[in-house]
């Protein structure tokens, strides 16, 4: 049991927090057919974070989140500009901007030498859940429970903060977002500040992506934005039910995926463990495929 608290608890907690934040914003993105935009955004935040850390020399939560947000707004502004002024087709604009941003982020990682410190490019992509260890929960430790809470990796607090922010934004504007997703023209005709609401949704999405990428990786962020919401979408016809269901599915896939990473290889006699972010993402995809297949039959 002690091993669970030291080795497994924090990765599970971090993956759960970021999966919840991503899944919640995913509901609105799925309904507006913007899953690809979420994919783009999750990559586009990378250079913002890297540049912010390189310039300030700090890697605190505020610097990381501010950098991610700035890049997200810059990228969506650029996409909108290409579509409007350059008359580029929206899918193309999205593809061009996010690959350019992501590539630029990787270049900055290399130039600044950040890639040799905490920002391994593999971790950016596939996450590094296994690196999240809760040192003071070891059995011989003398630290009290609350004191040892302070020893949790910084990323856990970052993810918890982001989850609270995302949930607050979605709750504050829940009826406005629902209308905006269903009928944006009527929303504007009714005098809703559509631009501000879009910015709020972009903020929530960028926060979820940014928080995710340092520990759980871009891949898991994308999987968690798209899969749980898309699965829930197949199972219910009420938006509130869909939101709740997507959260439950996100948590279930995190636990199932993590278990698969830890125990899966042992079934085949291997002592290695799989990359947990990878198995969680795969589990989320499987859940979606299985639900779709069941629905197609039934």
């Amino acid at each position: 049991m002690a091993e669970f608290w030291i080795v497994d608890f924090v990765p599970l907690l971090a993956a759960s927090l970021s999966a919840l934040a991503c899944a919640l914003v995913g509901n609105l993105l799925i309904l507006t057919r913007r899953a690809m935009a979420a994919d783009a955004l999750s990559h586009a935040v990378v250079p913002g974070v890297v540049v912010a850390v390189a310039i300030t020399g700090l890697s605190g939560s505020i610097v990381v989140l501010a950098g991610g947000l700035a890049a997200a707004f810059a990228a969506s502004g650029l996409v909108a500009f290409l579509i409007r002024a350059g008359r580029v087709e929206p899918g193309t604009a999205l593809g061009v901007v996010f690959t350019t941003f992501f590539a630029f982020g990787i270049l900055v990682l290399e130039w600044t030498g950040l890639s040799r410190t905490g920002f391994d490019i593999h971790h950016v992509v596939t996450g590094y859940l296994e690196g999240l260890i809760w040192v003071s929960r070891d059995p011989g430790g003398t630290a009290g429970f609350f004191q040892s809470l302070m020893d949790l990796p910084q990323v856990v607090f970052e993810l918890a903060l982001v989850l609270v922010l995302v949930a607050a934004i979605l709750a504050a504007f829940r009826k406005e977002f629902a209308l905006l997703a269903f009928d944006p023209v009527f929303a504007r005709a009714s005098g809703l500040p559509v631009g501000l609401l879009e910015a709020a949704l972009l903020t929530a999405t960028a926060l979820a992506c940014t928080a995710a990428f340092k520990s759980v990786g871009v891949v898991l962020a994308v999987a968690m934005i798209v899969c749980p919401a898309a699965t829930a979408r197949l199972l219910t016809t009420r938006l509130s039910h869909q939101m709740a269901l997507s959260a439950a599915i996100a948590l279930a896939t995190v636990f199932a995926g993590y278990a698969a990473a830890v125990f899966g290889p042992r079934l085949f006699g291997s002592a290695l463990a799989l990359n947990a972010a990878g198995t969680i993402g795969a589990m989320a995809g499987l859940a979606l495929a299985a639900t779709a297949a069941l629905r197609a039959r039934g």
Partner: peptide, 8 residues
């Protein structure tokens, strides 16, 4: 102009 499959 809208998607009537929307969960509402």
């Amino acid at each position: 102009t809208v998607d009537w499959d929307f969960p509402a």
